[in-house]
Write a protein that binds this DNA or RNA. Structure first.
Length: 426
DNA sequence: TCTGGGGTCCTAGGACCC
DNA sequence: TCTGGGGTCCTAGGACCC
């Protein structure tokens, strides 16, 4: 194969697969993983998919169905998934000179220059086998001349066991055959809205889509769709951002039950959001120049007074200081909280407009001693690294765990907490 | 009773300027 | 009251992704 070749590696049913690594008894059984607060289904094993359980389905609606069908249920355990993801990515990076991590369970590999399709396939199969053996996570690899085609190939790799986890699209006739069998709804970049227009025009498969003219795509959609259309033709035009850091960081939660009506409680939570944002900023060596704070009442309750708090803050000097960000958002919260007649179901803090910490523009008349502030941050971070997160924290966060989310079905942190490491019986 | 969390990119429209 | 044309920049919201 010549020219640029992309591999898209995708972990199968990632969260479920992570749980199964430590619960081999659940192999071949229906399993689901729930979102925060056990709200809805966010990962399903093949058996659960076969039972008809939908992605994003609210848990309370299918509780009985799950019991009747003996489906194993897990609350989400992000410490476990994050750690497993790092392991997979680290192994993937051994099979390519360039790895772009696209999401927690997906990455794009540069597989150019490996030789003919057979050689690429052999390389991929070795990789899939090694990861399964070394970590226990099943991975599918799609290979093609564009990222969108590679993504499609990875879905074929996943659905046909005969491929042994690897599907390579090389020739035009292979591409045509693959496109003809592929529902346009499953194409990377085509969502609900675009699908409606596609259906209206009788476009059902990816092949129907590529057969339309460029001007038709432009007219009916936009430049994003045009790029997807080109990619499906084999013309690579989607660039992935290779910034070494994220452009925005968001920490938010929905609250279980009736929500939160008490200012003091919400203050503690918001202080926690702010400190997480600041910690993540420092982790990737960035400062933020803008902050967004929001809090909403339930959008499903029409019988109660609703409120939406949304405040934007622009900073004169970029920061990644916990106390500074916390102070700013807490002030917004106190001003806009209302009188306690609202019950807030969701809140969050977003920081964006990020710059590298090494290039922070200061102002001449600053009311903060930035040198002292950085020294304090450094000291706090080093204590927390040694003694665990939030050993030192802002006082507003309080001393107790401020909100206990519903996590009825949480699995142990097998890989990140020493008490949870599996013991072998001998 | 109970409905996730964290991202990116694009675009239309307003504000402002000449 | 009527009332140009063109450019830039910013932002909110939409659409998409996992």
């Amino acid at each position: 194969m010549s020219g640029e070749i992309f591999g898209l590696a995708d972990c199968n049913n990632f969260f479920v697969s992570c749980e199964r690594v430590f619960r081999p008894d659940l192999r071949d059984k229906p399993v689901v993983v729930l979102s925060n607060n056990d709200g809805c289904v966010i990962s399903r094993s093949n058996e659960s998919k076969a039972l008809g359980i939908k992605m994003g389905e609210p848990f309370f609606k299918i509780r009985d169905f799950i019991k009747d069908n003996d489906v194993a249920v897990f609350s989400s355990n992000y410490a476990l998934y994050g750690d497993m993801s790092r392991r997979v990515m680290s192994m993937l990076s051994a099979y390519t000179p360039r790895l772009d991590i696209y999401s927690v369970d997906e990455a794009i590999l540069d597989l150019s220059g490996l030789g003919d399709a057979d050689a690429v396939r052999a390389h991929g199969k070795r990789m899939v086998r090694d990861i399964k053996k070394g970590i226990g996570i099943p991975v599918s690899l799609g290979v093609a001349a564009t990222k969108t085609l590679a993504k499609m190939a990875s879905k074929y790799a996943k659905s046909y066991p005969g491929y042994e986890g690897v599907c390579v699209i090389e020739t035009d006739s292979q591409r045509e055959k693959a496109l003809k069998q592929f529902p346009v709804a499953d194409v990377w970049g085509i969502g609900r809205k675009m699908l409606r227009t596609m259906e209206y025009h009788g476009v059902r498969t990816a092949w129907d889509f590529v057969c339309r003219s460029e001007s038709w795509v432009r007219r009916e959609f936009n430049v994003v769709a045009l790029r997807t259309w080109r990619e499906l033709q084999g013309d690579s035009c989607i660039k992935l951002d290779d910034l070494p850091y994220r452009k925005s960081i968001c920490v938010s939660r929905s609250f279980p039950g009736q929500g939160i009506t008490d200012l003091r409680t919400l203050e503690e939570i918001v202080a926690y959001f702010a400190s997480e944002c600041a910690r993540k900023l420092r982790e990737q060596n960035t400062h933020c120049s803008q902050i967004l704070f929001f809090a909403y009442t339930s959008r499903f309750r029409t019988d109660q007074p609703g409120n939406i708090i949304q405040r934007h803050l622009k900073l004169r000097v970029p920061t990644n200081d916990t106390a500074e960000i916390a102070h700013a958002v807490l002030q917004c919260l106190r001003e806009d909280f209302g009188t306690g007649r609202y019950s807030y179901k969701k809140a969050g803090v977003v920081v964006w407009d990020l710059t590298s910490s090494s290039a922070v523009q200061t102002v001449l008349f600053d009311d903060v001693d930035r040198g002292k502030q950085q020294a304090l941050i450094k000291a706090v971070d080093s204590i927390n690294r040694k003694n665990g997160r939030n050993t030192v924290k802002v006082a507003t966060m309080g001393s107790t765990k401020v909100f206990v989310a519903d996590h009825q079905y949480e699995s142990p942190c097998y890989t990140t907490r020493i008490e949870d490491v599996l013991r072998l019986k001998v």
